[in-house]
């Protein structure tokens, strides 16, 4: 009996503690979308071939595969597929000409969107058009080159784990800059090797793990949380003190969101950085600075008085 009570107690606590992970969120349009995921969520699909007069099975183009787990965990998870894609996609097999459909950009929906005003999409769009991605490439470079419409999830505002944000955001850059196939969609150039290009950077791995590419490669502004004004490489941050100082630029980029909440905690300059890492030069402490100055000054004063007395009383 006693063992049964203990078992029940453990079971109940387990359900209360871990059970929440298994509660499935019911997402709008998931039923309609499931018809799309039937093929686009599987490595193969089948259709009836009128010419052959039989059912054929083909392999799904891997670039047309959509991970439903990622889809239902992203910003636009409540969307019906045909909110963005042509209604005619409901018909199967799809008409081949549908592949040429123009895709909407962020501003097509979010321009003047008061509910999303805090994201400042207009400024993001302006920054993007000033960036090398827009000025040096064709119109094919759209929002979707970086923000995968089927999986993109905002991080900087929502995720308190800065390291996860760094990995997520850097993977967006690396999805082109470390993948020649995607890179050459918009540029005939050979993709430069990211590691070799940053040979000059000391503690390269530490830097890559603790800052995002955009920290050094963008021009920041007050209007936009995550800078989109990617600059040419000659304008990238190369002076260490731009980050390693009390006026660290990281507070205007990576730690912008946290910085609005706490700037100087327990006397540490740029305290928001300390939630994730420690930055020499940027995280000195006001109180310890004063205390060390007072101690050092007092010792020098004692030495001076001692020396003077030695001379005078000789």
């Amino acid at each position: 009996m006693k063992q049964l009570i203990i078992f029940n107690l453990i079971f109940t606590i387990s359900i209360l503690t871990f059970g929440q992970d298994y509660i499935t969120e019911v997402v709008e349009h998931s039923e309609e979308n499931s018809k799309c995921f039937y093929c686009h969520g599987s490595p193969t699909y089948s259709y009836y071939n009128d010419v052959l007069e039989r059912k054929v099975t083909k392999r799904m183009n891997p670039y047309f595969l959509v991970d439903s787990n990622l889809y239902y965990d992203q910003n636009h998870k409540s969307f019906d597929c045909i909110d963005c894609h042509a209604y005619e996609f409901r018909e199967f097999p799809h008409d081949n000409t549908l592949q040429m459909e123009p895709m909407p950009t962020c501003l097509d929906c979010h321009e003047g969107d008061e509910a999303m005003a805090h994201y400042n999409f207009e400024s993001i769009n302006d920054e993007f058009h000033e960036s090398v991605h827009s000025t040096k490439h064709s119109d094919e470079f759209t929002c979707w080159m970086c923000h995968n419409p089927h999986s993109y999830k905002i991080n900087a505002r929502n995720n308190k784990n800065v390291k996860e944000t760094i990995i997520y955001d850097n993977n967006i850059c690396l999805s082109c800059h470390a993948d020649i196939n995607k890179y050459q969609l918009i540029s005939p150039k050979v993709n430069p090797n990211v590691i070799d290009m940053h040979d000059w950077l000391p503690n390269q791995l530490e830097h890559f793990a603790h800052v995002r590419c955009i920290e050094c490669h963008t021009h920041t502004s007050d209007n936009v949380m995550v800078a989109h004004h990617i600059q040419t490489k000659d304008k990238a941050v190369k002076k260490c003190v731009e980050c390693h100082s009390s006026s660290s630029t990281l507070m205007a980029s990576l730690y912008k969101f946290q910085a609005q909440e706490n700037r100087r905690k327990y006397g540490f300059f740029n305290a928001a950085i300390l939630s994730d890492t420690y930055l020499i030069g940027a995280n000195r402490n006001l109180y310890l600075n004063i205390l060390s100055g007072v101690i050092f000054g007092t010792i020098l004063l004692i030495i001076l008085i001692h020396a003077l007395l030695r001379i005078l009383l000789k």
């Binding site: 000391p202 260490c240 003190v241 009390s246 020499i280 030069g281």
Partner: peptide, 18 residues
């Protein structure tokens, strides 16, 4: 120099100091 590194004034450039 590293502890008090600054954009405005520099005792020794940061990379050299390191």
């Amino acid at each position: 120099s590293l502890q008090y590194s600054s954009v405005e004034y520099t005792i020794i450039p940061f990379n050299y100091a390191v």
